[in-house]
Nucleic acid binder design. Structure first.
Lengths: 268, 268
DNA sequence: AAGTGGTCTAGACCACTGT
DNA sequence: CAGTGGTCTAGACCACTTT
């Protein structure tokens, strides 16, 4: 029986706390398996279901991952920092995000094609739903762990104007790790991004996302809608990023005074 | 029995999908209770535990909330948009965030006191752990729903210099809904914020946070570490925000060219 | 074949809410 | 008080991985 000296806390929570502590103190090491559920159950004097429920808390928190038929393993989870301003000011930045932690980045380009814009994409691009766009679906990895899904959308005419559908442009689309090279390409052709905005929300991963990102059942993902606009304030690219929430740290910084649009109400 | 025509999907997932659909289509309306677990169990021909597991998925996703002894209710969850740049450029912005949705904001100031800086706060403020700081703990609401925990820290000497500990300063600390009035106060005294940075992470709510924010078991929160610096680049305030992830949408925007610090590596 | 986690059940007792 | 969800158990069968 688990001690219930003080806290009117359920057993599975106590067990989750215990396991969490053991992970944080290194009693269970990264990539090592936890004892099996029957083992823990018998050691702690509870039923296997109770242990399972405790572990499911750790899974949602991203502390462990389960390999079916094999065991439950401690995740090695250094958070990767994504500095938004830096990232889009430096063509190599996206590649460097993971490297800072000694991870080697890899991009898998799932698909580049012409499709009809969904409502979400259309709104962000300032076009009508159903209008043609070029989409590039990608999955990005660090050390073979999937870290991000990135779907980039470009208005059809901009992609065409810019020659992004010609052989070398298409090759660029497929090979670029971040967005830097594509932006540079657009810039040379008069559509260089001058302004960005991002909307960040957190939600539970869909089934497909969970599969693609190697996530557990109810794990949260960060969903970023990134919009790049050219000097005419016209959206030239929309990127949807879906990222395992436990893997990332987002960084933004800005100056209080440089931007004057919002300054009207500042008296003093 | 639940139909298993096509999908090799567990019953509790199918039931979760079913309930989610009913919520999204308005079959179950916001603030209405779901049928009770025994009721659903018997209707769907499964055990109560299975229904409970399905519902726990919806809870983590923030779609429903449970009132013990009473029932399970559909959450009414319009996301509140937090525009970072706007928010810190306009003294009233924080107050307006909720109002845009017809919600009435309220702040509850839990505590204002002098304490020793924790490591996290000390690092952000560029001081040593244990150094004295003024802390203001608050809980913010929209229509009586808690939306945010906000702990603001100021270096002791800056708070003292600025007179924030005098009666009117202290009153300000307790009454201000956002940070605007405090920033204006600091600005008048030579420590106006000139630059901000924010780190955003997502994690599972602690027990205390879950209680304070009326959250379910494994629900994710957004953790923002906000740092304000004066013209000398000295941190004048650090604010830690803990927000239920399902309640918010964060917005950031910036221009690609204005900031030159990162331009060095741009070739061509 | 043995071991792992995934899922499900029937039944039980509890704390809490609303009437 | 009856009804709600919270938790727990013992036992079962399954799919999958590892040996």
């Amino acid at each position: 029986m688990v001690e219930q000296v003080f806290a009117p806390k359920s057993q599975y929570r106590q067990i989750a706390d215990l396991l969490r502590e053991r992970i944080e103190t290194g009693f269970y090491l990264p990539d090592d398996p936890l004892p099996s559920e029957p083992e823990l159950a018998s050691e702690l004097g509870v039923s296997r279901v109770t242990v399972n429920k405790a572990i499911s808390l750790l899974r949602t928190a991203g502390l462990v991952r389960v390999r079916r038929g094999s065991g439950t393993y401690v995740r090695s989870t250094p958070r990767i920092t994504r500095d938004a301003r830096y990232r889009y000011a430096n063509p190599r930045a996206a590649e460097l995000e993971g490297r800072a932690l000694g991870l080697s980045p890899r991009a898998e380009c799932t698909e580049v094609s012409k499709v009809e814009a969904s409502t979400e994409v259309a709104v962000a691009l300032g076009i009508d739903a159903g209008d043609p766009v070029v989409v590039r679906h990608r999955r990005l990895f660090a050390d073979d762990e999937p870290t991000r899904l990135a779907d980039a959308y470009l208005p059809w005419d901009i992609a065409e104007d810019s020659g992004l559908l010609e052989p070398d442009g298409a090759e660029l689309l497929e090979s670029d790790v971040g967005s830097g090279a594509v932006y540079a390409y657009l810039a040379e052709r008069g559509h260089g991004p001058a302004r960005f905005d991002e909307d960040v929300t957190v939600r539970v991963a869909s089934d497909a996302e969970a599969r693609a990102l190697d996530l557990e059942d109810g794990q949260p993902v960060i969903h970023i809608t990134h919009v790049a606009r050219d000097a005419d304030d016209r959206p030239v690219e929309v990127a949807l990023h879906v990222m395992p929430a436990h893997l990332w740290r987002l960084h933004y910084d800005w100056s209080a005074l440089r931007d004057d649009e919002y300054g009207a109400e500042n008296d003093d």
